[in-house]
C-alpha cells in the first residue's frame, strides 16, 4: 500500500479530478494549502505586481494498493501540467503506508483501501 500525495496548481484541480475519475480512482482527499517551491508567483493587485512569499496550492492525498500506483501517478502527470510543463506545477510524493483501517467495519490492510 502506498500513500500518494500530490501538490498541484490550484486551478488544475478540476482537470486532475477528471483524469483520476477516468482511471477509476474515485477515493480522494483534497486540501487547500500554501507553500513555496521553485515557483515565484506574481499577482497583480490594483496595477501593482506583488510577490506573495507563500503560493496557494491544492494538496491531494490518495491511498492506493500497489497495482494502482502507476496509473494514479500517470493520471496526475497527464492532467496537472500547465502548458506542457511549467515551474510551479507541483510535486508528487509516494510514501509507504503501514496500515489502513476502515472505521465502519474494522477491516484492515488492502481490503480497506
Amino acid at each position: 500500500m502506498k500513500l500518494i500525495t500530490a501538490i498541484i496548481q490550484e486551478n488544475k484541480l478540476d482537470q486532475v479530478r477528471e483524469a483520476l475519475i477516468e482511471e477509476e480512482v474515485y477515493r480522494i482527499t483534497v486540501t487547500r494549502v500554501s507553500g513555496r517551491g521553485q515557483q515565484v508567483s506574481d499577482c497583480v493587485y490594483r496595477g501593482q505586481t506583488t510577490t506573495p512569499n507563500l503560493v496557494p496550492k491544492v494538496r491531494i492525498d490518495i491511498a492506493v494498493n500497489e497495482e494502482w500506483v502507476e496509473r494514479t501517478i500517470n493520471a496526475i502527470l497527464r492532467s496537472a501540467r500547465y502548458n506542457g510543463g511549467s515551474v510551479g506545477d507541483g510535486k508528487i510524493f509516494v510514501t509507504p503506508l503501514n496500515e489502513c483501517i476502515r472505521i465502519r467495519t474494522g477491516e484492515r490492510g488492502c481490503e480497506a483501501i
Binding site: K12, D14, R32, V33, S34, C43, L54, V55, P56
Partner: peptide
C-alpha cells in the same frame, strides 16, 4: 471554465485570507 472565472478573467482569488500566504 475548469480553472474558474476568478483566475481566468480577473487574475484574482476571492478567499485569499483562508490560506496563509
Amino acid at each position: 471554465e475548469m480553472a474558474g472565472l476568478d483566475d481566468s478573467y480577473h487574475g484574482e482569488r476571492g478567499y485569499g485570507m483562508l490560506t496563509a500566504s
